[in-house]
Amino acid sequence: MNIVKSLVIFIIAGICEIGGGYLIWLWLKLDKPLWYGIAGGLVLALYGVVATWQSADFGRVYAAYGGIFILMALLWSWKVDSFKPDKYDVIGAMIALFGACIIIFFPRNK
């Protein structure tokens, strides 16, 4: 699969996963209305669908998602929750992202 297309799918899936989880968090932790939780559940279900658009095997895709989502979660927290990642957050996210890229994009012998 084209690397750019794959990265776009990872980003869409990450927004669904983090956004859906965030809506449920707001509902349960910050007493937002029930519709936040319902919307969050629907967005999380959409995440499950978007993940299937990747061409790699299930285990490899989900392992790579882990590294990419670490970075996306920090970016979400920074932009949405005004959380300021420190240098260790950034270093850890970069290591995870590098590992995710090795898992999903490095060529394999078949």
Rank of each mutant, 00 (worst) to 15 (best):
Phe106Tyr: 11
Ala63Glu: 05
Ala73Trp: 02
Trp78Ile: 01
Ala73Val: 13
Tyr36Arg: 11
Arg108Asp: 03
Ala93Trp: 00
Leu34Phe: 13
Leu44Ala: 11
Asn109Phe: 12
Gly20Phe: 00
Ala73Ser: 14
Val4Ile: 15
Lys5Ala: 04
Ala45Gly: 06
Trp27Val: 01
Leu74Ser: 02
Ile104Glu: 12
Gly48Ile: 01
Trp53Ile: 07
Trp76Tyr: 02
Gly99Ser: 12
Gln54Tyr: 13
Phe58Cys: 01
Pro33Asp: 10
Ala73Leu: 12
Ser82Phe: 00
Ile18Asn: 04
Ser6Phe: 08
Ile91Lys: 07
Ala56Phe: 08
Tyr47Lys: 05
Val8His: 04
Ile24Asn: 04
Leu34Asn: 09
Thr52His: 09
Tyr47Cys: 13
Gly20Leu: 03
Leu46Ile: 13
Tyr22Ser: 06
Ala73Glu: 03
Trp35Arg: 06
Leu97Gly: 10
Ala45Ile: 14
Leu30Met: 13
Thr52Ala: 11
Ile18Gly: 04
Ile95Asn: 08
Met1Pro: 10
Phe106Ser: 03
Asp86Gly: 12
Ile68Asp: 01
Trp25Gln: 05
Ile102Gly: 01
Val49Phe: 14
Ala56Val: 11
Lys5Glu: 01
Trp27Ile: 00
Ile15Val: 15
Met72Leu: 12
Leu26His: 05
Trp78Leu: 08
Asp86Cys: 02
Val43Arg: 01
Asp89Ile: 06
Leu23Ile: 03
Ile12Trp: 02
Gly66Phe: 08
Val8Leu: 15
Asn109Met: 07
Ile104Gly: 06
Ile15Tyr: 07
Asp31Glu: 13
Leu75Met: 00
Gly41Val: 13
Ala13Met: 12
Trp53Asp: 01
Leu30Trp: 09
Leu44Met: 14
Trp27Pro: 01
Gly40Tyr: 03
Gly37Tyr: 03
Ile12Asp: 02
Phe69Arg: 07
Tyr65Glu: 06
Met1Gly: 14
Leu42Glu: 02
Cys16Ser: 05
Tyr36Leu: 08
Ile95Tyr: 10
Trp78Cys: 04
Ile3Cys: 02
Ile11Asn: 06
Glu17Cys: 13
Pro107Ser: 11
Phe10His: 08
Ile103Met: 05
Lys32Ala: 14
Phe106Trp: 07
Tyr65Leu: 15
Thr52Lys: 15
Leu74Val: 03
Leu30Thr: 09
Lys84Met: 07
Leu97Trp: 10
Asp86Thr: 08
Phe83Glu: 08
Trp78Pro: 02
Ile15Arg: 06
Val4Cys: 06
Lys79Met: 03
Met94Arg: 01
Ile38Gln: 05
Cys16Thr: 02
Lys29Arg: 03
Ala51Ser: 15
Leu26Ala: 09
Tyr65Asn: 08
Leu97Asn: 06
Leu71Gln: 05
Val61Met: 04
Ala63Asp: 07
Phe98Ala: 13
Val49Asp: 02
Arg60Thr: 15
Trp76Gly: 06
Ser55Cys: 09
Ala51His: 00
Ile11His: 04
Ile3Trp: 07
Leu75Ser: 00
Gly19Val: 05
Val49Gln: 08
